[in-house]
């Protein structure tokens, strides 16, 4: 049997080759055929999950509830020291210095990255802003969110904090951060579907051992982190409850 593996479409383009290298490593370690399919959008990925076409996924936290509670996935591991955080930025010459000063009808540039959208809208709540009283400008990448700000088309931009930090110094010098989330407990996770659940412990042991092995560390370096830590079921349930609380 060939298992189907996918990575949440919000992966950094810099890590694309890293995920293919990781998949090769995983096949060697498990002795199983694993096909990596990268979907272009959350919609395409969602369709594949609904059709039971995914056995292993590096999942966005926003999808965790559906994966665990509706599709029977179990959590395996998360990157050590990596949490999903969002931030709100404006053009450096903007007159806005506090979210509370934003007005109804504010134009918000954001991507379709679901957990960052949710955290971003939460950061805008102190300004009484919601999806119902603002104009959303949809962007396909964080660099395009920055472009909307620089060209004056958007009043604020919602960024994955890591993506903002990775923008060039020149671009960041023309932007200003209004507020950055400090949530710490929302993270992507590698999760196994029902077809792989019987190998959960073995997979977790392999993943955790990667950080202690030269070859494993080289593979992880291409993904942008240094080690995996196991995620148990209750850790995942806690994060799902937290996401539920933030979604309302």
């Amino acid at each position: 049997m060939t298992y189907q593996f996918t990575v949440s479409p919000d992966f950094s383009p810099d890590h694309l080759s890293g995920w293919y290298i990781f998949n090769t490593w995983l096949q060697k370690q498990t002795g199983e055929g694993i096909h990596l399919e990268m979907y272009n959008s959350f919609q395409e990925q969602g369709t594949a999950i609904q059709n039971d076409g995914v056995d292993l996924i590096y999942a966005n936290p926003f999808d965790a509830a559906m994966l665990v509670r509706d599709k029977g996935f179990c959590p395996l591991a998360k990157p050590v020291g990596v949490a999903d955080e969002a931030l709100i930025a404006v053009s450096a010459d903007s007159a806005i210095y506090d979210v509370a000063d934003l007005s109804l009808g504010t134009k918000i540039a954001m991507t379709d990255d679901p957990d960052v959208r949710m955290m971003g809208m939460m950061l805008l709540e102190p300004g009484d802003l919601s999806a119902n009283n603002t104009q959303i400008i949809h962007c396909n990448a964080y660099i395009l969110v920055a472009k909307q700000l620089l060209q004056g088309h958007a009043d604020v931009g919602v960024f994955l904090a890591e993506a903002y930090d990775d923008l060039s110094g020149m671009i960041k010098s023309k932007l200003r951060v209004l507020v950055r989330s400090e949530i710490s407990v929302i993270h992507h996770a590698l999760m196994a579907g029902p077809n792989l659940a019987h190998r959960k412990e073995e997979l977790q042991a392999l993943l955790v051992a990667m950080g202690a092995d030269d070859k494993g560390r080289d593979v992880l370096k291409n993904l942008g982190f240094e080690a995996w830590a196991t995620v148990d079921h209750e850790d995942m349930e806690f994060m799902i409850d937290l996401m539920d609380a933030l979604a309302v």
Binding site: M122, P126, L242, A245
Partner: peptide, 28 residues
Amino acid sequence: VKATVIPNIRQGKLVSYTSVRRKPSRTK
């Protein structure tokens, strides 16, 4: 605070509650 309290359901059973608080707007 703007508080959200959610029941934590595990295997169909209520086991605990989680309260998540975030910054409220001054208007509210």
